[in-house]
């Protein structure tokens, strides 16, 4: 039998997070399509980042509040809980409380929280700002300074607003997430803009923008495959690992919230909604999956272990 195995010219960059810590992580580094261990090298497993929030996430559905009920509103305790009780390898601190339309917490408050979390746990931290706008610039800049030298991953730089974040990450030794709206060319263009500012692309993770299951998943799935094929084909401006923010896209949709008996047990269906979104994007190339429900995280982690045995 003569089925060709595919060798590619290009290779995905390795992004190192919290490299000074014994629990630091390297992301990416593969020279083949997603999970194709049978024809390439895959030095680093895809990882799941546990999402925690700086303030009680009152809008989160009961299913994803319940497992954390003792630590909601106590982000440091929350971080320790997922690390110690669930064996988290990386967390995502979502600074929803800094949103001017919510609690409008100050950049200083966010920075001091990040410092406390970094001293409480030794794993890498993804820091997610409140979304594009002046406030995000200020919040992420303050956090980057406070976490100087701890190689965190900051989210996100967008085409309209990337310079401040790039400068902060360069100054304080962090990596950043480059977010573009489900588009191969815009993804490449933002990476070029970032690299033009002299930030090494070894410190960039691509957020292709996640559409949840039933709400645009297929666009994300295909744009990731296209970006990855172009990267492996040798395009140096695309050779970066992917991050997918799963939780936010899953836990708000109708099929997760609705109590329709014809649709079967609601909570199990909701958890499977998160599993299905995460697993399919794992197959299209995700290197970091940001997720919420402990059972969904456990199931997808087991799948990753199975896939990485080759």
């Amino acid at each position: 039998m003569d089925i060709p195995l595919e060798k590619h010219k290009g290779k995905i960059r390795t992004v190192e997070l919290r490299k000074e810590s014994p629990s630091g992580l390297a992301i990416g580094g593969q020279d083949c399509l997603a999970l194709h261990l049978f024809e390439g090298s895959y030095p680093n497993k895809p990882v799941i980042a546990w999402e925690i929030t700086d303030t009680d996430p009152s809008k989160w559905l009961g299913d994803v509040r319940k497992p954390y009920k003792d630590v909601l509103g106590d982000p440091v305790g929350w971080a320790k809980m997922v690390r110690e009780e669930h064996g988290a390898k990386i967390i995502c601190l979502n600074l929803i409380g800094t949103d001017p339309n919510k609690d409008d917490k100050s950049p200083e408050e966010a920075a001091s929280l990040l410092k406390n979390i970094l001293s409480a746990i030794d794993i890498p931290v993804i820091v997610k700002g409140p979304g594009p706008g002046e406030k995000q610039n200020d919040v992420l800049a303050a956090c980057a300074e406070a976490a100087s030298g701890q190689s965190c991953l900051f989210a996100a730089a967008v085409e309209e607003q990337y310079k401040t974040l790039v400068a902060s990450c360069m100054a304080y030794g962090h990596a950043l997430v480059a977010e573009t709206p489900i588009d191969v060319n815009l993804c490449k263009q933002l990476n070029i803009l970032i690299s033009d500012m002299n930030l090494s692309l070894d410190r960039v993770v691509i957020d292709p923008l996640t559409g949840g299951l039933g709400y645009g998943l297929e666009y994300t799935y295909s744009v990731m495959e296209r970006i990855r094929l172009q990267a492996l084909g040798g395009d140096e401006m695309m050779q970066n690992p992917f991050i997918c923010f799963i939780g936010d896209e899953v836990w708000k949709v109708k099929e997760v919230k609705a109590d329709d008996p014809a649709w079967g047990d609601r909570e199990k269906r909701a958890i499977l909604w998160e599993i299905a979104t995460a697993t399919s994007l794992l197959y299209s190339g995700a290197d970091i999956l940001v997720m919420r429900h402990p059972e969904a995280i456990k199931a997808v982690n087991e799948a990753i272990d199975d896939l990485m045995k080759g």
Partner: peptide, 15 residues
């Protein structure tokens, strides 16, 4: 299981 129906068939619809 009935609760698998919607997630799996929606995924197939997407793909």
């Amino acid at each position: 299981q009935p609760w698998q129906f919607l997630p799996l068939l929606t995924l197939r619809q997407n793909i």
